[in-house]
Amino acid sequence: MGSHLPELLTALTRLTTHWSSASTQYAVAAAAGVDVDPIDIPPLYVLGLEGPARAGDLAIALRLTRPTMSKQLSRLERAGLIERAPDPTDARASIIRLSATGHDVHERLVAQGLSMVTDALSGWGRAEAALFVPQLTRFVEALTDIPTATAIGEGRPPTRS
């Protein structure tokens, strides 16, 4: 297995760089008929896939600083894509959730993403694709089972002592 690791790392780097790029996210949003700044799309994905969350938890999930997350949430709230509700467990905090418009935008972004995945798998056999999905899911789960951003300083790399 070791001889394939550089190739795997290269493929993973290409995938994450491509998918997370502003130009790719802009193209996905445009194709979905969504007018959202590409930088503000990841919180929509997380809220749509995982449900309501506190701003701090979103920042950790997205590996962002709290000030950056706050700016994104302010833009999304002004655009009418999210709503804030009081956190029943902490009066100082709020729970962020997608608005009805935000749900619609999320669904259109996901539909466009699924279309891209379908296109990418178009040359694959059914059995081949059926094997790939659980393997990729297992790989991503193992790869993302690392210390959270809080444990390493709000998304900054740990410092050496």
Score class of each variant (00 low, 15 high):
76 L>M: 14
88 P>R: 09
104 D>E: 14
98 L>D: 13
100 A>F: 02
101 T>W: 12
104 D>Y: 07
58 L>G: 04
81 L>P: 10
65 T>W: 00
105 V>D: 08
77 E>S: 14
74 S>T: 15
98 L>Y: 02
91 A>L: 04
61 A>E: 15
90 D>S: 04
74 S>I: 10
91 A>G: 13
75 R>W: 13
101 T>P: 11
78 R>Y: 13
56 G>S: 13
106 H>K: 12
95 I>W: 03
107 E>Q: 13
113 G>A: 03
74 S>M: 12
69 M>N: 07
85 A>Y: 05
101 T>S: 15
82 I>N: 09
53 A>M: 09
94 S>M: 05
83 E>K: 12
94 S>W: 01
108 R>S: 02
65 T>C: 10
100 A>Y: 06
106 H>I: 11
102 G>Q: 08
107 E>F: 09
89 T>C: 01
92 R>Q: 07
109 L>I: 01
77 E>L: 14
89 T>N: 11
77 E>M: 12
84 R>V: 00
61 A>P: 01
112 Q>R: 12
72 Q>D: 00
105 V>T: 11
61 A>Y: 08
94 S>I: 03
82 I>A: 06
59 A>H: 04
87 D>G: 01
57 D>W: 05
65 T>I: 00
67 P>L: 00
85 A>S: 15
107 E>M: 14
65 T>E: 13
108 R>Q: 08
108 R>V: 02
106 H>Q: 11
104 D>V: 13
107 E>L: 13
62 L>I: 02
75 R>P: 13
62 L>P: 03
77 E>G: 09
53 A>V: 03
100 A>P: 09
60 I>M: 09
73 L>S: 07
67 P>Q: 06
75 R>A: 14
104 D>T: 12
73 L>H: 08
97 R>A: 13
104 D>K: 12
88 P>I: 02
64 L>W: 12
81 L>S: 09
98 L>C: 10
105 V>S: 10
62 L>G: 02
88 P>A: 08
52 P>H: 07
68 T>I: 06
95 I>L: 14
102 G>A: 07
98 L>P: 10
76 L>I: 11
107 E>N: 15
52 P>A: 05
71 K>I: 14
76 L>Q: 12
83 E>P: 05
87 D>Y: 00
56 G>M: 09
77 E>R: 15
108 R>H: 08
97 R>K: 14
111 A>V: 02
104 D>F: 10
83 E>G: 04
107 E>R: 15
72 Q>E: 08
59 A>E: 06
89 T>R: 04
56 G>F: 02
64 L>M: 12
93 A>G: 08
70 S>R: 12
61 A>F: 04
62 L>Y: 01
74 S>W: 00
87 D>L: 03
89 T>M: 01
75 R>V: 13
88 P>D: 04
89 T>P: 03
